[in-house]
């Protein structure tokens, strides 16, 4: 996203940052709405069949992935391309693992509370919306590994990495709210 304005490079960065933050703020209202629906429709009800250990496990995986992403971002900022790639690949792996976990979760949920039931409606929608964000995050992380970004890193421009990592953190934070609302409250 290039900027045409009377702006220097530093200003461009500030513009990009603001744009990203506005996007994240905007998107967080989507999750707010989803969480509201959960309480509006189901109160704090929670089926006993829900697999809390698995939920906890994938939460940890996602938090670890955020950690790896953070290390990747720092490495990128210092121009350490090797370490950057290693950490982002690790993030990708953990993110994929999270999706596998959600898949397991879903196959269990299909048996105990399918999407056509009250709780299932909420459960599948919340996890589904979130998983969709995870998928887009993984795509963005992959883009950060492509040659374009690598070349920019060599020039000392790590904005692209910063952006996808911020987005990834956002996806992670969203889960930090979703996990207790679906798995813990009652």
């Amino acid at each position: 996203m290039a900027v045409i304005a009377h702006t220097a490079h530093k200003d461009k960065l500030a513009i990009h940052r603001l744009g990203l933050w506005l996007f994240i703020i905007s998107d967080s209202f989507l999750f707010l709405g989803l969480l509201f629906s959960r309480f509006y429709l189901q109160g704090v009800r929670r089926p006993p069949e829900i697999n809390q250990p698995l939920g906890l496990a994938i939460s940890i995986v996602l938090i670890l992935s955020s950690l790896a992403a953070y290390r990747g971002e720092t490495a990128a900022a210092y121009g350490d391309i090797k370490r950057f790639r290693r950490n982002i690949l690790l993030t990708l792996g953990l993110g994929a693992l999270f999706l596998v976990g959600v898949g397991l979760e879903w196959s269990e949920a299909f048996r105990s509370f399918p999407p056509s039931t009250g709780y299932g409606t909420i459960f599948f929608t919340l996890t589904g919306f979130h998983a969709f964000h995870v998928v887009t995050g993984l795509l963005a992380l992959t883009v950060a590994l492509l040659p374009g970004q690598r070349a920019r890193l060599q020039e000392g421009n790590s904005w692209g990495v910063e952006a996808v990592v911020k987005y990834w953190h956002f996806v992670d934070v969203a889960w930090v709210f979703i996990f207790p609302t679906l798995y813990l409250v009652s």
Binding site: L41, Q42, P115, S116, T117, Y119, G120, T121, F124, T125
Partner: peptide, 9 residues
């Protein structure tokens, strides 16, 4: 899904 269907909560 059953967001708006009273028969399904």
């Amino acid at each position: 899904l059953g967001f708006f269907d009273p028969a399904r909560e």
